[in-house]
Amino acid sequence: MTVQTSHTARRGAAIAFLSPAMAVIVLFVAVPIALTFWISLHDWSMYTPLSQMTWRGLGNYADLLHSDDFLNALENTLVYVVIVLVTTVPLALALGMLLYFPKMAGKGVARAALFSTYVIPTVAIAIVWGALYAPDYGPLSQALGAVGIDSPAWLSDPQTALLSLGVFHVWQMTGYYTILVIAGLTQIPDDVYEAARIDGAGFWRQTFSVTLPLLRRTTTFIVLIAAINAIQVFDPVYILTQGGPAESTTVLSYAIQRAAFQNGMAGQASAMAFSLLLVLVAVAGVVLAAMRRRTAAEGRS
């Protein structure tokens, strides 16, 4: 067998082995995304076949730029992402270290309990949180009232509704991110800490000079996933607030659902969905680029 024949055979084998996976990716990722973009260039109620859509060009995108509702949804989504990130990531790091370093009994139970909030379906938990957040007569309000604190109206006040949903999200997701942090901590060799201790580093010095720098890849991944999860939040908004009160919890995912399935504006909804995709790609790009730049800088030093 010649070298040329061997290369051709290998290429054929590679294509044969990769094609099932590629076909799945094309069918379930590339085609839907391309179709979403195609629909976003039309007006479509979803009651008619795709072949009967009305061409709008970039009109749906132009409408979004001038839509206060879209900009409000975008702003709410960004605020929600910030609330989630600034709370979840430090909390997950702190809990992860707390559940990894100290030698104590019950760590496994604590990890399982934290992770369980992630496993329970959001719909079921959201119903419970709806009752917890009931203004005046709900358990949270009663508890605050018992210690003489005026309770906020939680989901019933535009000033606190988005924050309340954020607290729910943090409660639900922190356990999952904590498990990721613990998995990252297991990758840090013990001899690094031993060397630090020999050099006289205390707990805080070890945390900021050893643990956090060596956890950077894990942290980057958590930031990325947490941001994406927050941008895509839908279930609690749909179940608990329906975007209200006064549009204060209308985030992009909910606005997309409402436009497509309630208002029959699938073209506009697709334009929003495609814009959201671009936002997600941009966020991921920025986070990954920052990580690569940092890695490259460290490599040079």
């Binding site: 995304i33 979403t36 895509q232 992009l252 497509a260 697709s270 969905a273 997600l280």
Partner: peptide, 11 residues
């Protein structure tokens, strides 16, 4: 992308 997927898969 879940949202894009949901809209697209519906379509």
């Amino acid at each position: 992308m879940r949202t894009v997927g949901a809209i697209s898969l519906g379509a």
